[in-house]
Design a protein around this nucleic acid. Structure first.
Lengths: 208, 208, 208, 208
DNA sequence: TATGAATGAGGGTTCATTCAT
DNA sequence: CATGAATGAACCCTCATTCAT
């Protein structure tokens, strides 16, 4: 039976939601299983029926982030503007909008885990990479949609990775300073770079 | 008696060295005090005579990183080239050289701690920020030394923060993929941006 | 399944029994949690599932003393004699009988804790007071049952507190001397006081 | 060289003062040697030169209490009144005056130690007993000075022990309740007892 | 003799996980 | 499948004491 309209989410979902939130807020190592249990309203036995270990739970959380990438992160951006290049900056703006009210606490949930568990959990690393790849995939798609507005020889994949670099590196500094300035500075330089690229491409087109 | 040439470093230094290394390799939360003690060859009482808590030890480690910033990170870069703009890219290259042999394990010790403890340890956050500020300070200085090779209206501070963003964001992806590609891509785009800036400044100078 | 006749008491009871005994024998601060665990045959996690802290365990031990006051301390006294005044001295005799075979080691478990933790553990102090109040309550009840055998204007509550004073003060000296003499002396003077009170009340009755 | 008028007390005295105060305030087990060192402004080596162990320090503290018994406790009482029986109650009043402003925190330093270390420290027990004996000795002396105001067959030693019982048992309850009531009640009943004794002795004298 | 870093056993507590019910 | 007490290794830290300087 699927849950009725009035019931709470099923056990597995409650655990994943609680774990995702707590890993984001406190980090993986700093989050005790007992806290997840309490927040999800679940017994240890139930959790260990569904997930063989805390590490496996982390893997499921990262699978879930992959599923949520489009509906939560990318769809709102695509809804905001149809201009593919503006979508890049709308995406970066969206992170700003999310974290500014929190004084840039928390940071990117994937990025945090990347630095915390990449080395110690070999089976988790690919899942982080898949999240990054998915993220960059959308940016790459947009950049390709920009067509000849950008220089022909510009490597769209590399630029997409750079956009992710700007988001992650910028958020890291924003968290450390509890201020938007370094994030805004980095996004601003990226915008300046894009402006120069657009200009060069424009010059290239007219000269052909 | 001061330590003879053959004796090992003093207790405080042994602890700081072991803690810095382990925090870098495993993260702060994943490193037990007992591991630090074993690696430093020290008893618990000795550690707690010198550092009131594990958190205070972390603070001292970050103070030490501030002290080591110039001799370990910046001096080798300044020794490699006198061209201020090349120094920026020599700095980014140096991180590549350090971490490529490790398949990009470990990552930036400051950046890792930034994401792991920025929220949970309010007293640590400023120390991380001071490390970032120190790092950016050198880059800013170089960019100013570049004088009119760069556009007059270019904000050197913001560009320096962007260089740090590229390093941290690029390393994060390099750790996740165990490959240099995203790091190289990000540095490559930064280089392309600089090339466009240098070109524009050059054009600006000749037109005056 | 409820414990069978042959099984040992449940974990909570085993912990409370061991803790009560060790706190009595060694004092609260001198008793390590690990000793309680060993004596109760229990793991640390089990203890901390049932009691949030060593202090909370102490509180539970004192709650248990309140529950045991009647069946262990007062019921045997009431069974020994029906004369309410003799019950007072039977109570004092019972402590003598308990501790004489131990050469007056250990002392009153409540009194010991009163002096050891009253100041340092504000949440424990009321529990000690409740034990004292319960104890005095029985003595007060008996004194009231003595009716006009005691002077009408005699404050039964104050006399009951004095009986407790004699027990605690007497036991303290008995422990220090490893002998009954000061205890017996104090009880003897209390008996002499009662004899004078009984005599006075008797005179008062006949004169009316 | 003896300490000059302006210097602070010597090391040994500073340690004994700090230890006595802290043992009184916190108990023996709850007081760390390091706290004594800090409060006395002394290094561990110095303390262990003067006292072989924490236990030996406790012994010296109790020796000191014996020395201070007359000047600190008894002399003020003897100065207050010349009536030997009033001295008994002046002594009990003095404890009330000391501890009322503290809401009956702390309690009798000797009594506290009696209950905390009597069993665990066999070498300390006699010192506690000597303090009690000294205390009772003064009371016995006064009671003897009362001569035939008290019944001839009254055992002065036993009454003196009862006075100590009242003080210690009363203070214990006062600490637990943070109020004077049980102490006052016990002293009040002792006073009533004395009144009856004085009356009886008076009757005895006139009938002879 | 004074110093204070070093010692290492033990302190109270939390952890991820298991398993009998 | 749910329950929640039980497990025991590991956690961070403090203790009384020693000893090289």
């Amino acid at each position: 039976m699927t849950p009725s309209a009035t019931s709470q989410p099923d056990t597995r979902t409650r655990i994943l939601d609680a774990a995702a939130r707590l890993f984001h807020e406190q980090g993986f190592n700093a989050t005790g299983v007992s806290t997840i249990l309490r927040e999800a309203g679940v017994n240890p036995g139930s959790l260990y029926n569904l997930f063989p270990s805390k590490d496996a739970l982390l893997a499921s959380v990262l699978e879930r982030y992959k599923e949520l990438l489009y509906p939560v992160v990318m769809a709102p951006v695509e809804a905001r503007t149809n201009d593919p290049i503006e979508r890049v900056f709308a995406l970066l703006q969206q992170y700003r909008d999310w974290f500014l009210p929190l004084d840039f606490r928390l940071g990117c949930p994937i990025g945090n885990l990347a630095l915390e568990v990449a080395d110690s959990h070999p089976e988790i690393r690919p899942l982080i990479q898949q999240n990054f790849d998915g993220w960059c995939g959308f940016v790459t798609k947009w950049l390709k949609e920009a067509g000849d507005r950008l220089p022909r020889d510009l490597d769209r994949d590399q630029v997409a990775q750079t956009v992710l670099t700007v988001m992650e590196g910028g958020l890291m500094q924003a968290r450390s300073s509890r201020s938007a300035s370094a994030y805004d500075a980095s996004v601003g330089q990226l915008r300046a770079y894009f402006d120069l690229l657009l200009e060069r491409a424009s010059a290239g087109r007219s000269s052909t």
